[in-house]
Amino acid sequence: MTNPKPVSGPQADTAEPPAETAPRDGGPVRSGWRMLLPTMTPWLALGLVLIGGITLFGLIGPHLVGDPGQIRDQGLTGPSAEFPLGTTQTGQDVLAQLAHATRGSLQIGFIVGVLATALSAFFGIYGAYRGRFIDEAFSLLSNVFLVIPGLPLVIVISGFVPRESRGLWTIALVLALTSWAASARVLRAQTLSVRNRDYVAAAQVSGERPWRVITVEILPNLLPVIASQFVFAVIAAILGEAGLAFIGLGASNSSTLGTMLFYAQNGFALPLGAWWWFVPPGLIIALIGMGLSLVNFSIDEIINPKLKNLRLHRKRARRAARLERELARASRRSGQAPDTDAPAAEEPTR
């Protein structure tokens, strides 16, 4: 193990000093997962609180309220101590309905989110990684699904399926099938870019199997994109289902925020001024969308660190600019006072 270099001698093989980042914190080493977590901002916190609160309401609420279907003779009464959100035309408790409907909508959103993300990940990532024929075929398939107009197809399919077999899963499947294609296109583009990076080539050269290259080397670098698409798919599914249910094509055996609005519409809640009947479900839908969007903005910052730097640097940049202006002003003052030529010197530059 002798080093033949004459002068450098024993020192030649010493290590280079660790990079300056080394001693910063002696704590446990941060894993790769850590960098996938967004930084906490007020907006992200608000989004998480909204989502958490609504989810909790959907999970626990149904156990605390009475039977949402129970018909009473106190139809269409406003909020009171007994019924905090009033009653419907047929005397049903709006709060109880709301709790069950929130649970139903979240269920649909979650199922569709998982299904659509799985479909887009498979068609987007696997196709792009394999390239050639498989990529062409998968691309064609997602392009076809992309140009199919989503809502009309959903209406047609939902209308075609007989009402009794039009359950929660059927609706979820229909929504998932019409919403994965755009995400698959994005994932394909991202995969193509990651696939051409040297570390993927290095993994292939060192003999990794294709599925390991995909799941261990490529997938982690796509996770923020996938997470963002999942969140987006959930929003789209909840809104889509609400739209379907509102026009009467929703799941037959479950109650969602959309079906609530459908019954409110049929019960002439609006002309009768029964705001407690249609405002709560509408508000919940809006808040779910808002919360998930806020979470999504934070995920965007991971995908595109420039957004984050923008926020971080804006303040610093302002301070630097102000300090520099002061310096320039001071310099101008000192330059003008003793030396009357200074303004003239600047003249020819105009």
């Binding site: 270099k5 002068v7 300056e20």
Partner: peptide, 15 residues
Amino acid sequence: IRTGVDETETPAATA
């Protein structure tokens, strides 16, 4: 080689 460059890096290089 006679100028004494070795395998190490200076701190400047990793600054």
